[in-house]
Design a protein around this nucleic acid. Structure first.
Lengths: 190, 190
DNA sequence: CAGAGCGGAGAACGAGCGTTCTCCCTCGAT
DNA sequence: ATCGAGGGAGAACGCTCGTTCTCCGCTCTG
């Protein structure tokens, strides 16, 4: 059964995404992706010319998904302060997923950061993007120093992401939300 | 030139520590450790009967070093509040090191967490130990809810650790310290 | 001095990796 | 009906890995 290029590409990417995220990029062979996606090895290499390219596509895919889900949570909230806290509700939802394994970018960076400048760059861009979005929210909430407050909130988020992965509990999201609330109380004009 | 067992063990562990931390545990082969430590492959396998065992020794070694350095910073401070903030000064010092690459436990967990229960366990213990130490400090400072405050501080620490690694900057330590100060202001009795 | 045992250097082994190649079947155009 | 392009299955290639084995020279005891 042959399918068109776009469909095959999506199948491969979805299989790679699940495997890379679960086991780490180095531990997953191209053959495992081939088996999971049901595509022949020849076709796989037509769609993605190397494993490095597939890793890059995987990270870009994660980035898009993450931004979409974050935006959905934020846009569902109304007041500026609630929009900021919605980011932590998003984390809470994310941590609940049974296959939650931390941040794909942090994990990939830990594996390949020294040896793959591209992965290091993508991780850095992903986090910088998050910082930009948070800064927009703190600006909208009238923070006197939006960038600084956003950085505080990022630290809480990143901490919750790794801590939740290692302790296998979604609780850090709630604690991070509480701490964020305290910081907003201290730094937002009442 | 033959050396006694304890010395050889230390040499191997130091070589493994440097290589594992820099490149990740999976990317480093036993042969690279053998070359770096100057020990024969036969002897290496007498000292550590498998790579898994060496990885475990590496993580335990990192844990000891980390606890020692943290304790030194904390003990150099006087007042309870200063002792808490000293943890963030420790992070700042750590991040300055040119070979800083994030937390060995987070990185190893990202690489092997799904496949090696032992690594997952060691990472979890390491973080739980940090939590215990921080809770002692928040108790001594008279926090009404020491465990909760300690959790907030851990989130800031973990966030600073990963953010500093990815952005290649020590600045997150300073921001984390500032945010910690705000939380202490809000939650410690004046 | 003879012989036994230990350690060093590195070859060897079986497995798995990323990537390419071969073979064969299918299918559409002439 | 015939030819040819393209894709599927998977063998093959060259490499690296973790681990074991072989060989050889050294040293310590009688």
């Amino acid at each position: 059964m042959t399918v068109d290029t776009a469909t095959a590409q999506r199948q491969v990417l979805e299989a790679a995404d699940a495997l890379f995220y679960e086991r780490g990029v180095q531990a997953v062979g191209m053959d495992a992706i081939r088996t999971a996606s049901g595509v022949s090895l020849k076709r796989l290499y037509q769609l993605f010319s190397s494993k490095d390219e597939l890793i890059e596509a995987y990270l870009k895919h994660r980035d898009e998904l993450w931004n979409t889900m974050l935006a959905e949570h934020v846009d569902a909230a109304g007041e500026p302060r609630e929009r900021i806290l919605a980011a932590f509700d998003f984390l809470n939802d994310w941590f609940q997923q049974p296959d939650y394994r931390g941040c794909a970018f942090i994990n990939s960076f830990g594996e390949l950061g020294t040896v793959s400048p591209r992965v290091a760059e993508l991780a850095n861009e992903h986090k910088a993007d998050f910082q930009r979005r948070l800064t927009e929210l703190t600006e909208a909430a009238g923070a006197p120093d939006p960038a600084r407050l956003a950085e505080y909130l990022i630290l809480l988020s990143e901490g919750a992401i790794t801590r939740s992965a290692i302790s296998r509990s979604a609780e850090p999201a709630e604690r991070a939300r509480e701490a964020a609330g305290l910081l907003l109380d201290a730094l937002l004009p009442s």
